[in-house]
Design a protein around this nucleic acid. Structure first.
Length: 933
RNA sequence: GGGGAUGUGGCGGAAUUGGCAGACGCGCUGGACUUAGGAUCCAGUUCCCGUGAGGGAGUGCAGGUUCAACUCCUGUCAUCCCCACCA
């Protein structure tokens, strides 16, 4: 009758923990205890609810926390919701209902689903990024960032009030000072291209644009510039990379972040421009295709070029390398300054500011057409179509500072305006892309690196003849006085020489770009920013931060959430949309807000609110701080509390956040650190990525594949304990692994066996199994118990939950067959089991006669003496093959092992008549004979 | 093209610093108890040969180091993920 019935046990204990506030966390760690902050990546509360993949990480952290509490640590274990986001906004557009309503419904469902799993969160700390009282502080942090500039000398963010203002700027007046500051803030405005879909009247994310058309509806999409907010994350690139050293993260994730930051060291070099408009004879040469080689050769030593170059070089060596390049030079960035002598042409990006200036009259049409076409392409198009590199000559020339030779300047979209200086020197002999381009267009290729024997002799000949590209290191050739230098040395030397002549300098570049921080959406945090208007209602360009006391800036009431209907243009053909009268450009939904929200008046001045909203990342950048002090209405977090709990000791979540979320959060944290809001330079000490749970068919779980498993169904049939146990038993936390219903049944069976270990299933009511007795445990029983204690404790520490469970199964197997079992041993076992399967553990703990919850019961102590075996089995190998096994005391030394092995009859037979060459005896491990004959 | 991860029975997966390959579970086979079992208990279960004792092979593939290799080294194949013209 009293079978294991999870359906009655689980609600009972959930109610008990709730009522007794078992998992409430005090404001500060209890004095004399070590703190432990364990954090899950909080979910986006989607309408579909949790699927079994979500709780994988939650269960793992919960086990860690439950065990840690029993080990006497003060545990912080909170949960919340990352609730801004597109799906809720789309739902609102469809239904006209405020997204908050749907969002709160979804949160309620998520919370319910988590609660039936008994994840031991302190729910009093729950938060959602959409809570007005939460995003009030998100806005506050934005203002901190806005109020900060980055001091490159000190490598830290400082208040804008401490920014030194140069005298000439100060003299130019208040607006000049303001502009000077605005250009240096960590939050600044710029024109950035967005994907604008006129038919949908909305701006789309890159992922929503497929082949130049909107993902939904297939409407045309144009890229066009829009004034937007950026965060200067690039200022922190160096620290974001360096500080990875000190954190305990998977190497793969660190590599991913380093790769994303993409630090490279090279040189910036100035090339003198000649042949720009008005420079007379120098641009008589049209850089042709086939003919380029001879033209180039002719131009090399033209007297005019030599003369101009000579004086320029002299000037530079006196005045040094200027901070910003003058009008007369084209500045490039290269990681291979050692190939400078092999540069045969230059390329600038179609968006480069010099395009117009460098384009000669007869190239004008061609260049304009090319740049216009490039502007229409999305980033994706540009890389996809790049199988064939394209470009047009500007008609202008540049002079190579190391040898005074002339080279044509091209425009090509294989050069990115956003990296380096947006201009390159092309070294086709030693760069794949330049090689491909030069080959296609018949440009000159000169080898300046001898690969030596890094390639086959035949290949080397090709390289030297300019018929093959070689990008590796080698020895310098065709490089004047530098000939013979190995690549690395050459780089150093020429960089120093260029610097000495004021022609170049060492430079560091990052792939990381500043963070585009505004979205043209409704369902996000409004910016606490006001734009000043003049008497006629036009923006003056001055920006004002909302006063801290006026936070939060809440979202306004809107009649409907539909985006503006744009005019039906033929966008791909239209390049100058903004100039058309009937054009209504991208306008965020907040522009439809009522005037009293949109146009506040402060001190007699009229303002317009910023109507962009923050991206979804914003809320997740600092939630781990708010959990510590969620009710605080004077600060995002109390400094005393922050100091006591930070950093997060263990952070568990999916690998999909390996780059962006973790980089953004680290960035904000560092700004807050510089500004004294937090006390640690890094927020997350240890990071673990849980793997994906696949469907039973080994495919990713998705609605469309129809292989989604809902945890509710599993809990209903097998109980939360079985679900928890199964998810942990499936395999290593980090690995991807397929779901198996039979596997769930397997752990369910195990729990039934545990149940019967303690409870008499034949009795009419729940009572102890008569086999449970009060007697001291035998040596064997103690050994099994203590080996289990050791293994489970270690496995929890190393997050190897699957093996911890298998050890508990072994324990159960041992005691199932025993005719009786000591109560004390069972009790200790239940404590070990409780972090994994807390409900059944509590129930059985109570059945054993305990009155109190075991949630804060001390963790069983491991006694090595009791775990010791009196004899152990040792394999004996002969020539690497196990031929027998011997029983010896665990502390037997090498001599005793060998003697015991020789005494073994089977070994004696194997050794008979053979010569023993060598004997290896490793105490506690094995004996190995090497024999001959 | 660059970076990262992973390859072990029919399946999920175990295996301190190199030291008994296959723990634990699923599945399967046989048996017990049963009117019955998707319950429970017992035994077996990497493959090949052998009734058996035992022998041989075996951790994607090919080599190497070692008394000893899933583990270390070299090469190679496959799968997955991320980034992708970053000069």
């Amino acid at each position: 009758m009293p079978r294991y019935n999870h359906a009655t046990i689980e609600p009972k204990w959930q109610a008990y923990w709730d009522e007794h506030q078992t998992f409430a966390t005090p404001r500060l760690p209890k004095p004399g205890t070590r703190k432990l902050y364990v954090l899950d990546m909080f979910p986006y509360p989607s309408g579909d609810g949790l699927h079994v993949g979500h709780p994988l990480g939650y269960i793992a952290t919960d086990i860690v926390c439950r065990a840690a509490r029993m080990q006497g640590r003060s545990v912080m274990h909170p949960m919340g919701f990352d609730a801004f986001g597109l799906p809720a906004e789309e739902h609102a557009i469809k239904t006209g209902q405020h997204p908050r309503i749907q969002t709160e419904k979804n949160i309620a469902n998520f919370r319910r689903q988590m609660k039936i799993l008994s994840l031991s969160y302190d729910w009093s700390r729950e938060l959602a990024t959409t809570d007005v009282e939460y995003f009030r502080w998100t806005q506050w942090i934005f203002l901190k960032i806005y109020d900060t500039w980055f001091d490159h000398e000190q490598q830290r963010g400082r208040p804008i009030s401490e920014l030194p203002i140069p005298d000439d700027v100060r003299a130019a007046g208040e607006d000049a000072i303001r502009a000077y500051q605005d250009e240096r803030r960590l939050a600044y405005q710029t024109e950035a291209p967005v994907n604008w879909c006129p038919a949908l009247g909305t701006v789309l994310a890159n992922e929503e644009v497929i082949d130049g058309k909107s993902e939904r509806g297939g409407h045309p999409v144009v890229r066009m510039p829009l004034r937007q907010w950026m965060l200067r994350i690039t200022a922190y690139a160096d620290r974001l990379e360096k500080d990875l050293e000190g954190v305990d993260w998977p190497e793969g994730i660190k590599a991913l972040q380093r790769n994303w930051i993409g630090r490279s060291t090279g040189a910036e070099v100035d090339f003198f421009i000649c042949g720009s408009a008005g420079a007379g004879d120098l641009h008589d040469f049209k850089p042709g295709l086939r003919g380029a080689q001879t033209i180039w050769a002719d131009a090399l030593h033209s007297a005019a070029a030599q003369e101009i170059f000579g004086t320029w070089k002299q000037d530079r060596s006196k005045s040094g390398f200027p901070r910003t390049p003058g009008r007369d030079v084209l500045r490039i960035y290269t990681t291979r300054p050692d190939t400078l002598f092999g540069a045969t042409y230059m390329v600038i990006a179609p968006e480069h500011p010099y395009v117009e200036r460098l384009t000669t009259a007869d190239q004008k049409d061609e260049v304009e057409a090319y740049c216009a076409a490039a502007a229409r392409k999305s980033d994706l198009d540009r890389t996809e179509l790049a199988k064939e590199k394209t470009g047009v000559p500007t008609g202008s020339w540049a002079i190579n500072p190391v040898n005074g030779e002339r080279m044509p300047i091209w425009i090509a979209d294989y050069v990115l305006s956003t990296y380096g200086t947006g201009a390159i020197m092309a070294v086709p002999a030693h760069d794949e892309r330049d090689f491909e381009f030069a080959k296609r267009l018949g440009l000159l290729i000169i080898a300046v690196v001898d690969p030596g024997n890094a390639v086959s002799p035949a290949e080397r000949e090709e390289v030297l003849a300019g018929q093959r590209c070689f990008v590796g290191d080698g020895t310098a050739i065709n490089s004047g006085k530098y000939d013979g230098l190995p690549t690395a040395k050459f780089k150093e030397k020429i960089t120093a020489d260029l610097a000495a002549h004021g022609l170049g300098r060492q430079a560091v570049n990052y792939k990381l770009r500043d963070w585009l921080f505004s979205r043209q959406r409704f369902w996000g945090e409004p910016f606490p920013i006001l734009h000043e208007l003049d008497a006629s209602g036009k923006p003056t360009g001055r920006v004002r931060a909302v006063d801290e006391k006026d936070l939060p800036v809440d979202l306004p009431h809107l009649e409907d959430f539909k985006p503006r209907q744009g005019s039906p243009l033929a966008p791909r053909a239209e390049l100058h949309l903004a100039e058309r009268d009937d054009y209504t450009g991208p306008e965020p939904p907040l522009d439809k807000a009522p005037d009293e929200w949109l146009y506040p008046v402060i001190a007699g001045k009229r303002y317009k609110r910023e109507t962009n909203t923050m991206p979804q990342w914003a809320g997740s950048c600092w939630y781990y701080l708010r959990f510590l002090d969620p009710q605080n209405d004077r600060a995002p977090v109390d400094p005393e509390i922050e100091k006591a709990w930070m950093p997060v000791d263990l952070y568990v979540g999916g690998a999909e956040h390996a780059v962006l979320h973790l980089l953004y959060a680290r960035f904000w944290h560092k700004v807050l650190y510089d500004r004294g809001v937090v006390s640690t330079p890094e927020p997350f000490q240890k990071l673990v990525n849980q793997g994906m749970i696949l469907g039973e068919n080994m495919e990713k779980m998705s609605k469309s594949r129809g292989n989604v498993i809902n945890p509710d169904a599993i809990v209903a049939e097998y109980g939360a304990d079985s679900l928890r146990l199964y998810e942990m038993f499936m395999g290593p936390l980090e690995a991807a692994k397929p779901w198996s219903m039979q596997g769930v049944n397997g752990v369910f069976t195990f729990l039934n066996r545990v149940w019967r270990l303690v409870i008499d299933e034949w009795a009419d009511s729940v009572q102890l199994n008569p086999a449970v007795v009060d007697r001291p445990p035998t040596a064997d029983e103690n050994r099994v118990l203590h080996q289990t204690i050791l293994a489970v404790s270690d496995d929890i520490r190393s997050l190897a939950f699957n093996t911890a469970i298998s050890r508990m199964m072994e324990f159960t197997n041992y005691f199932t067959t025993a005719s009786d079992r000591p109560r004390e041993v069972l009790g200790k076992f239940l404590l070990l089991l409780s972090p994994f399967a807390p409900h059944i553990a509590e129930e059985l703990w109570q059945a054993l006669g305990h009155r109190q919850s075991l949630a804060h019961e001390p963790w069983p102590e491991f006694d090595p003496e009791l775990a010791k075996q009196d004899t152990i089995e040792i394999p004996v190998q002969i020539n690497g093959k196990v031929r027998s096994k011997i029983m010896v005391p665990p502390d037997a030394d090498a001599k005793q092992l060998e003697a015991a092995a020789r005494a073994d009859t089977r070994i004696a037979e194997w050794l008979a008549g053979k010569q023993v060459v060598k004997v290896i005896a490793v105490p506690g491990r094995l004996v190995s004979f090497v024999v001959k004959g």
